[in-house]
């Protein structure tokens, strides 16, 4: 990816709310960040977590609670959610890295289920209803994120959009820097050949755990923003469906590519909003995409494109 491509992407991101309905665009950015964070684990460390919804949804509850019940400003709410996700990531990660491969996926799924039960039963989560009517609040106590500007006769929540966009760019940049750092090189070495990385003297467990915590924290950041965008933290966010969805986004776009999760999140979110009338057939469609993707193009859109262009995207 050269400089111009990045600049073009940022300009698209800045202009997008005037073309696409901002809420859809913000949902897209949240899930894209979630998928990118997930990809740091699956794509660059080779760890398949089937419980990432725990971090996404868990942080979304914490942010919702902090902003709604404790009256914190949105940036502190997001910080709280992200820190919570990082801490949860540390707990889950330390347990899960004790097992490899397929067991790792099952352990993360089962641990995420504990978080789901807590979200269902805990006194402050609102049970089946979730946390509703979370206020968007004033950023740093100054900028009203609920503010709606009238552009060309239609109301647009631009303040919130640009806040989410900046946060997304920050998260994406952290992931990009991580992948391209010496630390990221070690992660790739672990993915390619773990025994070799061990024999080279790397403390593999520690690298895996740090990657897990970064991934969980950023997934949490995505979830925190989601709770401000939709003003809702619900059981869906912590359910295994959401964990599966983020796997699909990453797989569809291209595991281990920088832009893949973006493309995958874009496709899945668009599908969902276009097919929202299809009701539960959407699950069938999502499942079918999974099957087709695994059978026919395991590299994903961006992975296949990269292969055609003979460069890594």
């Amino acid at each position: 990816m050269n400089k111009y491509a990045w600049v073009a992407l940022i300009i698209i991101g800045l202009l997008a709310p005037f073309v696409v309905y901002p809420v859809i665009m913000m949902k897209l950015l949240c899930f894209a960040l979630f998928a990118c964070a997930f990809n740091l684990l699956l794509g660059y460390t080779g760890l398949l977590s089937f419980g990432h919804a725990a971090f996404f949804g868990g942080a979304s509850y914490i942010t919702g609670y902090l902003v709604k019940n404790s009256g914190l400003t949105p940036e502190l709410g997001i910080l709280g959610g992200t820190l919570f996700a990082a801490f949860l990531g540390y707990l889950v990660g330390s347990l899960a890295i004790r097992r490899q491969g397929i067991y790792f996926a099952m352990v993360t799924l089962a641990l995420a289920q504990i978080v789901y039960f807590v979200a269902l039963k805990a006194p402050f989560t609102g049970g089946e209803d979730g946390l509703q009517g979370i206020p968007r609040g004033k950023l740093f106590g100054l900028i009203d994120l609920g503010h709606v500007s009238i552009v060309g006769g239609s109301p647009l929540g631009l303040n919130l959009y640009y806040f989410v966009f900046v946060m997304f760019c920050l998260g994406f940049w952290i992931i990009y820097r991580t992948i391209n750092s010496p630390f990221g090189q070690v992660l790739k070495a672990i993915r390619e050949n773990e025994p070799r990385a061990v024999s080279l003297g790397y403390k593999v467990e520690r690298f895996k755990l740090i990657a897990f915590v970064i991934s969980a924290a950023l997934a949490g950041m995505a979830g925190s923003m989601k709770s401000l965008v939709f003003q809702l933290a619900s059981l869906t966010d912590v359910s295994w469906h959401t964990s599966g969805e983020v796997v699909l986004m990453t797989l569809l776009g291209g595991v281990g590519t920088v832009l893949g999760p973006l493309a995958g999140a874009f496709t899945v979110i668009t599908l969902q909003s276009e097919l929202s009338s299809a009701g539960s057939w959407i699950t069938v469609i999502i499942g079918s995409i999974f099957v087709i993707c695994v059978l026919l193009f395991r590299r994903g859109f961006i992975g296949e494109l990269g292969r055609l262009l003979k460069r890594s995207l």
């Binding site: 398949l48 491969g101 397929i102 996926a105 599966g244 796997v247 797989l251 009701g279 539960s280 057939w281 959407i282 699950t283 069938v284 469609i285 999502i286 499942g287 079918s288 995409i289 999974f290 099957v291 993707c293 695994v294 059978l295 395991r298």
Partner: peptide, 28 residues
Amino acid sequence: RRLYRFDHLYGLLLTFGLALIIQGIFTN
């Protein structure tokens, strides 16, 4: 059958997709 040559994780992902399809049809 087509997946035995690849990483075991693909088998998990494929059967996850199948589970969604079967469950989705019956939910409908």
